[in-house]
Computed example of a mutant assay.
Amino acid sequence: MTTTIDRTPVKPAPAPGMLSNNFSLAEFVESDTAMRRRIANVPNSAVMERLKNTAANMEKVREILGNVPVHVTSGYRSPALNKAVGGSPNSDHIDGDACDFRAPAFGPPILICHAIVKSGLRFDQLIEEGTWVHISFGPRMRQQVLTMRGGKYFNGLRPI
């Protein structure tokens, strides 16, 4: 009888406090507005699972960008925090499906968006917002690509 050894590499589980290998829960819930206004920004267990999915997808984004550091500027927003920052009432941030980020070592948001679109990564919404990128991985997975200029949204990616 011959025994086969499974040599498939095992990915280590994220460290405590981490949603994935490179993204922490702290960076996905941190908010100056929440601190200033004393708004609890604590995800429930259902949102935590969705945040883990978002972080796993952000690991893919990080790979697409050549493994440069990706800085999350806004992740989960409780309904009260979302309202305080003027977010859309049906924002994917509330469900833990979205994040806003920058990756200065890769380049400006427009180049980040072009790289993500070219990669074929599945997402719900990708928005180039001038100084940051919004990406969501909500259940609809529409592959919607938008540009925001002057507070208005336009289909596709537009030059600066």
Rank of each mutant, 00 (worst) to 15 (best):
Arg142Cys: 12
Glu59Asn: 05
Ser91Arg: 04
Ala46Ile: 10
Asn53Gly: 07
Asn41Gln: 08
His71Phe: 06
Val72Asp: 00
Asp97Ile: 00
Arg36Cys: 03
Arg37Asp: 11
Arg38Gly: 09
Trp132Arg: 15
Asp92Phe: 03
His114Glu: 15
Ala56Asp: 05
Asn22Asp: 09
Gln143Cys: 13
Leu25Ala: 07
Phe101Gln: 04
Gly130Ser: 07
Gly86Ala: 12
Gln144Thr: 13
Asp100Thr: 09
Ile94Thr: 12
Lys118Ile: 07
Val70Trp: 04
Ile112Gln: 05
Asp32Ala: 15
Gln144Cys: 09
Pro79Ser: 04
Pro109Lys: 00
Asn41Ile: 08
Thr54Lys: 07
Gly96Trp: 00
Ile116Asn: 04
Ile127Val: 15
Met35Ala: 12
Pro79Leu: 00
Gly17Cys: 09
Glu59Gln: 06
Pro104Glu: 08
Lys52Thr: 04
Glu129Ala: 15
Leu25Gly: 04
Ser20Ala: 06
Arg50Trp: 01
Ser119Ile: 13
His134Thr: 06
Gly86Ile: 14
Asp100Tyr: 04
Ser119Gly: 14
Cys113Pro: 08
Ser24Cys: 09
Glu63Leu: 12
Cys99His: 02
Gln144Glu: 10
Arg142Trp: 13
Val47Cys: 08
Gln125Cys: 13
Ala34Thr: 11
His93Asp: 05
Arg102Met: 14
Pro109Gly: 04
Val145Ile: 15
Val47Lys: 00
Thr33Tyr: 07
Ile127Cys: 11
Leu81Asp: 01
Gly86Leu: 13
His93Cys: 04
Thr8Tyr: 09
His114Gly: 07
Arg77Phe: 07
Ile110Pro: 00
Arg140Asp: 12
Arg36Asn: 10
Leu51Gln: 02
Val72Leu: 00
Pro89Trp: 05
Arg38Gln: 12
Ile39Trp: 13
Pro89Asn: 01
Cys113Thr: 10
Asp6Ala: 08
Asp92Glu: 15
Pro108Asn: 10
Asp124Thr: 06
Ser136Met: 09
Thr54Arg: 05
